[in-house]
Each structure stands twice: as C-alpha cells, then as structure tokens.
Amino acid sequence: MALNNIWVFAQASNGAPTSATLELLTKARSLSSNVVAIIGGDGASAGVLGEYGATKVYAINHGSTLPGVAIASALKSVIDGGETPDLIMFPQNYEGRDVMARLSVKIDKTVITNNVDISDSGDGVTVVTPIFGGNTLVSTTFTGAGPYLAAFRPKSFAAESAGGAAAAVTAIAVPDLGATGAANVTAVHVEETSGPKLDEADIVVSGGRGLGESPSYALIEELATLLKGAPGASRAIVDAGWVPYSYQVGQTGKVVKPTIYIAAGISGATQHMVGMKGSKNIIAINKDKEAPIFGVADLGIVGDVHKVLPQIIAALKGR
C-alpha cells in the first residue's frame, strides 16, 4: 500500500525537538511525501520539524493535563473530521506509549511497540522487533486497514536534515475529556547531572549489582569523569535506589550507542543488553565467567570490579 499520509508524534525539550523526533521524521519522509508532526504545546519548534521533513505541524496545547489522554483525544477529533493517516509513528518512551495506547482504543487498532525498523513493500507495512535480547528479529506485517500504530526505539534511524522550510502550524483543540482528564501535573522536578548526556556520550561507564553496595558506585562516577564520559546503571541498582532512573541503560531506560561501553559488575540480562548492544566497543568486567555480558564483549576481564576499577583509575590519574 502506498503511505499517503504519515503522522509522527513529536516531542520537544526547551523548544528544541528531541533526537528521537528527528530520527522518526527522517524515516517518515523516506516513506511518504506527506508527514505531519504532532506536538504538545504551541508548535514553537515548527522550524526544525520542517527542516527534518514535516510538511505540517498539529500543535495540541494540553496545559497541565497528562498528555496521553489529551493528545489522543485531539487526534481522534482530527480523524473523525475526515483525515485518515495510514501510519502513526511514536517514539518508544513514556508519552509516546501513553498517547499510542489511548488512541488505539479510540480507533480500535492494534499497536506494535519496540520496533527498530519499518518498510513498505507495496503489499503491506512491516516492522522489525528484536526479541531475546536482540538475538532474534521478528518481522510483523499489519493486516486490515490503517491507521497502523507503531513505536520505535531511540537510535533506530539516523537523523538527517532535509533542508525543508518551516512547517505550517495548525492548533488542534483538546476536546472535553470528562473523568479521563482528572490527572494533572502540579510540580515538575528535574534531576541535574553534570558532564555529557548519557544517550549522547562517546564513552559510557555503567555499574550493576556486582558492585556489591551503593557507595561503590563512586568508582563508576570517577572512571566516567576521568574518561569524559557519562555514568550509567543496570536496572537492578536503579530499582535498589542507588542511582536515579535517569541513569538506567536498557529496555526500560536509555538506549546508548557510544564508541566505548564499559560494563562493570553487570551480568548482562536481556533487559540491559538491548540498551547497549549497539555500542561500537564493549569492555566487560565481571566475576562470573559465564555471565552473558561476555558474549558481546570485545574485551572481557573475569575479575573483581573492586580490584580492577581502582587500578584503571590509578593508571589514568598517573598519566
């Protein structure tokens, strides 16, 4: 089928579109000449959205209401008004998932999440989803009529500017949400970090349960600082409260593809591996030589992180 109209759920931070947004717009414009960017707020980022391929912007100001139900309801009103997108692309993150889930019920269409690729054969639209820690790739084809709803993991596509002009902005009103609109944000808290951002850093040093106890995480931060990289973490130590969620690498955290990824005291659960397997070079330090992390490591040290990390730190300081 031809994809005559694609919608992309776009997000911005401080007025600038997120990298995931630009990745999806780049892919969308290779599949269709009509690409609509859907964005919460006032559409202030329409210039950059147009540059990366959006031909139109629908701006949906949802105020303090959580965006999931508000944006989905506004999109439903556009669809009811007669515009039918063939495909709606979402980033695999909180807001993306919430909008997608609410809309899927409103239009009674299936969702396929966690994708890393999409193609249109002319006979059908097919997405690719990695499973079992990324060892197996499953291709799934949508059946029946669209809109098809698909969510994509960060860094699935390279973002490239198309040099397009700023997209025209249309404001879409949020319909009366009734009881479903009762959830409201009353305060926003941002956890400040110094150094490069985890998902943009060239070097990432991550720690896991093998560190033993929370104070040992200081070794990870010290090594990351010495290498001008970012510290990361496995889900296990985030759940245990050692570090904030924003440090988490993995399926439910950040996807990173740095030049060098150092995994210290991380066994390599599927949940973690899908977030870091795309790294160019992987160094692993773990006591257990059977740990799955060694299956993806370019250099693996079977040893105690409490001995090896301080040695690396001392060697770097001595240079």
Partner: peptide, 17 residues
C-alpha cells in the same frame, strides 16, 4: 490485526578476548 511474516537471527557480534 497483525501477522508475523518473518523470524531471523540478528547478526552476532564477533567474540572478543
């Protein structure tokens, strides 16, 4: 509303040292 059309092995990383 969807059907699995293919299952393939991902390219494995070269085993390291």
């Amino acid at each position: 509303g969807q059907k699995i059309s293919n299952v393939a092995q991902a390219e494995a990383r070269q085993a390291g040292e």
